[in-house]
């Protein structure tokens, strides 16, 4: 607005700072680059331009205020009537009902044919979500593929395990915990699933699928760091806090003749978060 005489000099200075910073940027780049220095110089180089232009606009350019009139936004009746008449000229096109139906049918068939390739994007879900790579007799191995012996963990110990030969099967990951056998309270029918205090549960949270990565040995609780669901490993990994509604599926275990821990079969229920086809929980 009011040019107090100093504005041109300030603006010039801003442009000089900008140019100097840009030259500096080029030099820093040529010398191999350095992120912090680059950031500071980018700030100065673009910031100088910003200050110069804004001061120029504020102090040296006309400010009016200028007034522009608004025209009403709706069209007039005459304009609308003209368009309606234009559209009516297509009457010859719209009156032929049979031809219209034919065109509609052809377009619909084309649309269906063009939409179908979406099916190629993924495999049929089928029973994929209902089973994992665990089979009866599969040895438990660490993520590095090392079999887990019955002496691997002390009480309070925890380990992530996979079925042998399937350490890349993300849905088969399980968390193996050793607890005091006298305090284990598993649901009926699972009395022999936890030999020598070893219990194994799916590591995929039944809420939103994060790995249930934190174990608190004193409380014997598994904790999901994503949404804070808590599962009690001595009680069949039933959810005790947080948004999870279902227990972590338990992997039935046994000790093989070779002294290594083995699965007696797959998880009895689908692992991970719930989905539409998940049947009602068996009581």
């Amino acid at each position: 607005m009011a040019d107090d005489g100093r504005a041109p000099r300030r603006i010039l200075w801003a442009f000089v700072v900008s140019a100097a910073a840009s030259i500096g940027l080029t030099v820093v780049y040529a010398l191999g680059g350095q992120p912090q220095v680059e950031g500071a110089l980018i700030g100065l180089s673009l910031g100088g331009l910003a200050v110069g232009l804004v001061l120029w606009g504020k102090h040296l350019l006309p400010h009016g205020p200028y007034v522009e009139e608004r025209e009403p936004l709706g069209s007039t009746a005459a304009e609308r009537g003209a368009v309606a008449a234009d559209v009516r000229r297509g009457g010859a096109l719209t009156r032929r009902r049979l031809l219209r139906a034919g065109l509609g049918g052809a377009l619909a068939a084309l649309a269906a044919a063009l939409v179908l390739p979406i099916r190629s994007l993924g495999p049929r879900p089928g029973r994929t979500l209902f089973r994992t790579a665990w089979v009866p007799g599969a040895r438990l191995v660490t993520p590095d593929g090392i079999p887990v012996s019955v002496a691997a963990l002390a009480e309070g110990g925890v380990l992530t395990v996979f079925p042998e030969g399937h350490t890349d099967a993300a849905d088969a990951q399980a968390v193996l915990v050793r607890v005091d056998p006298t305090i284990v309270r598993l649901p009926p029918g699972r009395e022999d699933w936890a030999p020598q205090g070893y219990v194994a549960y799916s590591k995929i949270c039944t809420h939103a699928g994060c790995p249930v990565g934190l174990y608190e040995p004193q409380a014997r609780q598994l904790f999901c760091p994503c949404h804070q669901s808590v599962f009690d490993v001595s009680q069949g990994a039933a959810p005790v806090a947080g948004p999870a509604t279902r227990a972590l599926p338990q992997l039935p275990l046994e000790v093989g003749a070779d002294g290594f821990l083995r699965a007696r079969g797959d998880f009895p229920e689908p692992v991970g978060p719930a989905f539409w086809e998940l049947p009602e929980e068996t009581p």
């Binding site: 220095v37 680059e38 950031g39 500071a40 110089l41 180089s45 673009l46 331009l49 910003a50 804004v54």
Partner: peptide
Amino acid sequence: VGLFFAIAAVLGAMGGL
């Protein structure tokens, strides 16, 4: 245009610092 340079300056400086 000055505002554009100001936004770019702040974002670029943040990106480096």
